[in-house]
Design a protein around this nucleic acid. Structure first.
Lengths: 335, 335
DNA sequence: TGATTAAATCGAACCGGTTCGATCAAACTG
DNA sequence: CAGTTTGATCGAACCGGTTCGATTTAATCA
């Protein structure tokens, strides 16, 4: 591998001139520049990014840290970020914490060690320790998905209260009153907001929420399945189930199928967030989806702005909250 | 941030001794070791991975390069690799090429620039240029999923011929004769093997393959959908469709639903590879799935072996081909 | 034309580690 | 006790770049 010294030798200039020529061609005379260009081509020189990062104290690498890269929600955002970053000479490396806070932390530390230029982070923690950790990082960070109280960073996400409200309203308008809600972890902002959206809308409509109809699905497949089972074996069953995310809603569908309930004939179902192949799932689930492309675009632009413009450090963190979209399916019937 | 020189100063030893003590404690006297340990703790020293990588010429980072992290097939493998790597003090960074060969190449070059310890690579290319590129890399690499002729590396994958054969056999035994096949790109090893499995099994059974019943779905959603449509609008329709991967098969299901065909009553469907939430798709698709956990485990062990054991460089590349598993659903009916 | 200023280039220090040959004292050999 | 081996430690070079103050060269002005 050719080094910058090889280039310098061949072009008969100093190493520092080569470095200067490569990073700021305008400050070098045209004819030296040409000599250097030829030498670079001749030896096939490519700068070592590691050495550059060490010397500069910054790399051109953006860390994308999420709990589940397999989730299409994150996938879309990743793609948007990646395209944008690539256009600005930055690379995205993805790390998956599998939802584990300590692993996420190790990964973030690793990325910081690599002198990452910036981080797009879907936070998985919420306690003091975690907040202090994130807050203490001296690197541009854009948080998304989960709004964590206490983290003073740019945030990009969707209006989750509205998401819960929209589906609740839809079910109410179809005549449902016994609406069940499979919730997510109470420490997650998205989960509590969606739940509040449900509760508030029910209250506004003057419909009482049956406490037995609110179960915790942890946003996971297994817990969602159990939660759904608990709903379905009650003597007084709900007429509609609202799943606070895709995993719990689809687990509920599975539970319904296994117990022989027809959807939507026996029980209606609605969910927040899309899944891959939702179009071939029968019935097509009525859902509220996030505008992942827009989210990804905002995250990308905001992060690159923080990275590239020096004075952005003094700009206060900003929240970007997008409106989710209602996508009707045929999983909810009028009663 | 404390550097190794701070530690050396405080412990009153040379920098090289500190370095030695940290990397090979046994070669340092117990009492200096203790001094150094205390100094490390006192200044809160953590080695800069960047500087280490630069000096050593190798990092502790493993690159996981695939075409679509959203595919659960890759997701499971990634998880296995990650767990194993973490146990061996290595980190996994994921890069997604979106199936684009040139982007994959850029990402691999980037990882090499970062002095990646090794690569787990699902190759996306096949031409001379690409093969030379991969072959020229001087880093441990384990390829998986796609076996590319000409790449002399460890390979981990499934018996795709068998996968195609199993489903074909299944359909034949149910009495089907007019079996259609939605194929993948002919340059992909998995695609051609699966197709051969289909053709060979048909031939063995003495059943002729209708040329109109073999269409190209490119392993993608859109092409798969079009391919399925071509099949379904023929006056003489197939009684069963075998999708060479999950995307084309599910696109076929969607096409069937849109045209009003019932599966399996009108047309049977079988596919290779699982998808997330396949359990809630109606009907439950009969499929052959790969043992992703086992694949991931083998990839992880093989790669770590190549990385950690110096003499492994002379070991010839090895192929690991696993037997896929038949998972019956209710998308195929007897006729 | 000599003084002043701007532009181009260079040398050396630095980023933060690793590595290897040299040094030196202690322990071992005959 | 002189000669050799061993173990601990050190100094210096190195990995491959960047950066900045100093120096040389060229251009501008009086």
């Amino acid at each position: 591998m050719a080094t910058i010294r090889d280039v310098a030798k061949l072009a008969d200039v100093s190493v520092s001139t080569v470095s200067l020529a490569l990073s700021n061609p305008a400050r070098v005379s045209p004819k030296t520049l040409e000599k250097i260009r030829q030498a670079v081509a001749a030896v096939g020189y490519v700068a070592d990014p590691l050495a550059q990062s060490l010397a500069r104290g910054r790399s051109r690498m953006i860390g994308f840290v999420v709990g589940n890269v397999g989730n299409p929600f994150f996938g879309d955002i990743r793609r948007e970020l990646e395209n944008y970053a690539l256009d600005h000479q930055h690379f995205v490396v993805v790390t998956d914490s599998s939802g584990k806070t300590d692993r996420e932390r190790a990964m973030v530390e690793h990325l910081i060690g690599l002198k990452a230029a910036g981080l797009a982070l879907a936070p998985s923690g919420y306690d003091r320790d975690y907040i202090d950790f994130i807050g203490g990082l001296n690197v541009p960070i854009v948080c998304f998905d989960q709004k964590v109280a206490g983290i003073e960073r740019d945030f990009v996400g969707s209006d989750n209260h509205l998401a819960g409200a929209m589906l609740t309203e839809h079910l109410l308008q179809l005549g449902h009153r016994r609406i069940a809600f499979i919730a997510g972890p109470s420490h997650m902002h998205t989960a509590t907001e969606r739940y509040r959206g449900f509760v508030d809308t029910m209250a506004n409509a003057g419909v009482e929420v049956n406490p037995n109809f609110v179960v915790d699905g942890q946003f996971t497949r297994t817990a969602g399945y159990e939660a759904a089972m608990r709903l379905l074996i009650q003597p007084e069953r709900p007429t509609a189930i609202l799943g606070a995310n895709n995993a719990v809603a689809l687990s509920a569908l599975q539970a319904m199928q296994e117990l022989g309930f027809r959807c939507p004939d026996d029980i209606s179902l609605a969910m927040i967030d899309n899944v891959q192949w939702s179009s071939v799932i029968t019935p097509r689930i009525t859902m509220v989806v996030q505008d992942t492309l827009a989210l990804g675009g905002i995250i990308a632009r905001r992060l690159m702005h923080r990275i590239t413009s020096p004075q952005s450090a003094v700009e206060p963190p900003q929240d970007f909250v997008l409106t989710p979209k209602f996508v009707p399916g045929n999983s909810c019937r009028r009663i």
